[in-house]
Design a binder for these strands. Structure first.
Length: 832
DNA sequence: GCTTAGGCTTCG
């Protein structure tokens, strides 16, 4: 923007304020052109809100209705369309524009709305507002949209005219103009208006080859070795670390703190660590670092692609763009140095006998065997191909459930922890997520306490031992709920959620301890299923806390989005974390007909047998077509002709019909005379009514033969792996507005959405019953058109975490976890 | 308030 335009805008603001001061109210629309109605242009770079009147309550565009009370309400959106200034009469104008609510994470219909401006406001809007600007409107009225039938946009229009109408406009500062007058002006305002702002501390970090003995410094480094906190002979826990940086110096660090929470949250080699106030000291002629008074530590995941999320128990810590930069540089440097171990974490399914490995798992139950040995019963959702050691213990010494279904029993590993780890294990609770470091898999071990004589003759089983001592970083860490590893683990454990919900044994693990249940549970719509030992707090208190904490709240559901429940369903890539809408049938059908066009002749690979199949007719009597199919000769020889076919030249509808007769259908096309998969926007696999999608970014898709190893079930995972497809996961994503006496809070429901609804996202994609259940749950928690009195009170567990807003700035986000909607008793048609 | 550990497998 030029200086000149800006001056005129400021003039406009002043003039508008002048008009406001005169306090004229002019309800007569014929006079509206006489008034200059305010278009306030806010400081560039700052969002609207910086100088917005505090009495305005923002209302979300999808929630606008003609029945709403518009007094003191505001609406915010980006100008996505600006119509021409139209003349109604001499000196009277109107202008139509479309604004859209900017919600990148939650999409809903009705995110855009027409706004119609009249009189001088239309003129000013025409002169000062551009497409792309973000504006906040207030003093509007709501009318039915006459164009709703045609544009399908929003059933309402916003009308802005008269004295009360007001627009606040903001636009971003062009990055190429860093010393523009506005930028200068802003900084002047800041320094004069806020002179007592606390001085921003600037931390300096010493490179690891620049450490001088007896100095107290701040350092950054990449962890190349660590021992999780262990009890020292003194009064503290001790963490032992070795870190390095671009100087390639490797420096040992020893941290003593009496609380484990204050120790560095290092979970794996490659993590990035920042320490403030550590002392360099000579020991054996080598520099080591020790924590000193005022010590603080923050750690980060070391993966180049992961979010820069500080891990700390500190309630306040300094973290800015400079830190972000340093972490990024250390990550890329570490990646180039191969510092991150090639075998990061091994699931139970991948354990090799006689190996040492780190296991990420959930503790299901534990039992003391004797003073030097404790049994931890854990699972990670994968099945170890070897028979596992069985340990029999008395039910009365077991904490957590003592018996399980056969299916689950097969997934449970018995871990025996010895000596110093026994004390640590005492603090663990069933349900905890753990990483056990340097666990050893021992084949055929027979001399185990608690073994029955009949089992001791079994020699082909694997035993897991955590030997005494701390060498090689041996130990156990409780992983925080928000760690990506835990989230991934939970996703795999959720595969067994159906068992879990019906298993009485899990109720033992998960049920809320009775002392924390509220008295009036009759009216609650949700139940917490976590075992956090914390008291419920008010939303205002939640907002005052730093991210990284868990809160229990008692709230009502004020609103939610998206309102259209099919939009709740998303596709998620666990590798690159991208989130996609599920493609609609029209788009998919288009991709199929496009693929039909290039289904010319091609030479299939030798492992495929080619044939033709007749498509079952549909009721409309469409022509009977024969399509090319290809079957794996290996599977054919095993008589499994229905298990997997590659189908060419079919329409979406035909594929859908054929899917009734084949377990797995992979649609293919001809590309440069060889077989290829369709564009990955289309499902790469049809399994009955279920469709599976792959990530475009993370897949290297090609038609390859699945390794089936005889008995193995051919499912979407086996096929995705064979085809080089990174399988996208169905997830449910919603944004809920919670409310209690102290205010409202926007929270996400995502990670535990399946638990919340008792419905799997995959089922929600195909099963009307599952969809109905989600709808009924939301209707029960937030009755449509109902008043606040009808909304049940909900007991909710919230996790606060650090996320990034659209501008890459840190923002505290909230997520509902460990919470289940109770089967609504208020809805009549609830299935049993 | 002071000390603790200061890597480097394996009894069970």
């Amino acid at each position: 923007m030029s200086k000149r335009t800006r001056r005129s805008l400021y003039a406009c603001v002043q003039r508008c304020q002048f008009e406001t001061q005169r306090g004229k109210t002019n309800p007569d629309p014929s006079n509206r052109h006489l008034n200059a109605m305010p278009v306030y242009v806010l400081s560039e770079g700052a969002g609207p809100g910086t100088r917005m009147p505090a009495h305005l309550t923002r209302i979300s565009i999808p929630l606008i209705t003609t029945r709403m009370d518009c007094v003191n309400k505001s609406v915010k959106g980006k100008v996505i369309c600006k119509g021409p200034l139209m003349s109604l009469a001499a000196n009277d104008f109107t202008l139509k524009s479309v604004i859209q609510e900017e919600e990148s994470d939650v999409l809903s219909q009705n995110m855009s709305i027409n706004i119609v401006l009249f009189g001088a406001l239309a003129e000013e809007f025409n002169q000062t507002v551009s497409q792309g600007d973000v504006l906040v409107a207030s003093g509007f009225t709501v009318a039915e949209s006459s164009t709703f039938q045609d544009d399908k946009m929003h059933p309402c229009n916003l009308l802005l005219s008269g004295h009360n109408a007001c627009l606040y406009v903001s636009r971003l500062l062009p990055p190429s103009d860093p010393i523009s007058p506005v930028a200068n002006k802003r900084s002047t305002i800041l320094s004069t208006e806020v002179p007592r702002r606390p001085k921003v501390l600037k931390y300096t970090y010493v490179r690891l080859d620049d450490l001088k003995p007896k100095t107290v410094v701040n350092v950054y480094g990449v962890v190349v070795f660590f021992k999780p906190p262990f009890k020292s002979r003194g009064s503290d826990f001790c963490s032992s670390l070795k870190i390095t940086d671009q100087s390639n110096q490797k420096i040992g660090c020893t941290i003593f703190c009496d609380k484990i929470d204050d120790h560095p949250q290092v979970f794996q080699v490659g993590d990035i660590i920042r320490m403030h106030r550590v002392k360099a000291q000579l020991f054996n002629n080598t520099i080591t670092l020790l924590n000193t008074h005022g010590f603080s530590v923050v750690t980060f995941d070391g993966a180049v692609a992961s979010a820069v999320e500080p891990r700390t128990s500190s309630r306040s810590f300094h973290f800015d763009q400079e830190d972000r930069r340093i972490v990024g540089e250390l990550r890329s440097w570490a990646a180039s140095q191969n510092l991150i171990p090639s075998v990061p974490a091994i699931p139970l399914a991948g354990v090799q006998p006689n190996s040492y490995f780190d296991l990420t798992c959930q503790l299901i139950a534990k039992a003391s065997i004797d003073t030097t040995c404790t049994l931890l019963r854990v699972w990670d959702g994968t099945k170890c191909p070897r028979a596992l050691l069985k340990v029999i213990v008395e039910p009365n010494v077991t904490e957590g459930p003592s018996s399980f279904s056969k299916e689950k029993e097969n997934l449970i590993a018995n871990v025996l922890v010895y000596d110093n780890h026994v004390e640590f294990a005492r603090e663990l609770k069933p349900g905890d997520f753990l990483r056990i470091y340097n666990l050893r898999a021992i084949p055929g071990s027979s001399k185990v306490p608690g073994l029955t004589s009949s089992q001791s003759v079994e020699v082909d089983h694997l035993a897991f031992h955590l030997h005494g001592g701390t060498t090689y970083g041996r130990g156990i860490r409780v992983l925080p709920e928000n760690s990506p590893d835990v989230q991934e683990l939970k996703r795999s454990l959720e595969m067994f959620a159906e068992d879990a919900l019906s298993d009485s044994e899990l109720l033992e693990v998960w049920s809320t301890p009775p002392e924390y249940l509220d008295e009036d549970t009759a009216d609650t719509g949700t139940e917490r299923s976590c075992d956090h030992d914390i008291r419920p707090v008010k939303l205002s208190e939640v907002k005052r806390c730093n991210p990284g904490q868990i809160h229990h709240v008692r709230v009502q559901l004020r609103s939610y989005k998206p309102r259209r429940l099919h939009q709740v369903l998303k596709l998620y890539c666990s590798k690159c974390s991208s989130l996609l809408d599920v493609p609609d049938d029209e788009l998919v059908a288009g991709l199929f007909s496009e693929a039909c066009r290039d289904s010319g002749s091609c030479a299939p690979p030798p492992w495929l047998f080619s044939g033709r199949v007749n498509v079952p007719r549909d009721s409309s009597g469409s022509p009977n077509r024969a399509l090319s199919i290809h079957l794996s000769t290996q599977l054919m020889s095993e008589g499994k002709t229905k298990e997997l076919v590659f189908l060419m030249g079919s329409t979406l509808e035909e594929t859908r019909r054929l899917a009734a007769g084949y377990q797995n259908i992979v649609p293919v096309r001809s590309s440069d005379s060889h077989l290829a998969l369709l564009d990955l926007s289309a499902p790469f696999l049809f399994r009955g009514r279920k469709r599976y999608y792959g990530c475009k970014q993370c897949s290297e898709a090609a038609v390859r033969e699945p390794r089936t190893d005889g008995a193995e079930v051919i499912d979407e995972k086996v096929i995705a792996e064979a085809l080089g497809v990174q399988l996208l996961q169905f997830i449910l994503l919603m944004k809920l507005e919670l409310q209690d006496a102290t205010g409202t809070l926007d929270v996400f429901l995502w990670r535990d959405a399946e638990l919340f609804f008792g419905v799997s996202a995959e089922d929600a994609a195909v099963d009307q019953e599952a969809q109905r259940r989600i709808q009924q749950t939301m209707d029960a928690l937030c009755p449509p058109g109902g008043n606040a009195g009808k909304r049940p009170w909900l007991n909710v567990c919230l996790t606060a975490y650090l996320g990034e807003d659209d501008d890459g700035l840190n923002q505290t986000c909230y997520q509902i976890c460990h919470t289940t909607a109770t089967r609504a008793s208020s809805t009549q048609s609830e299935p049993v």
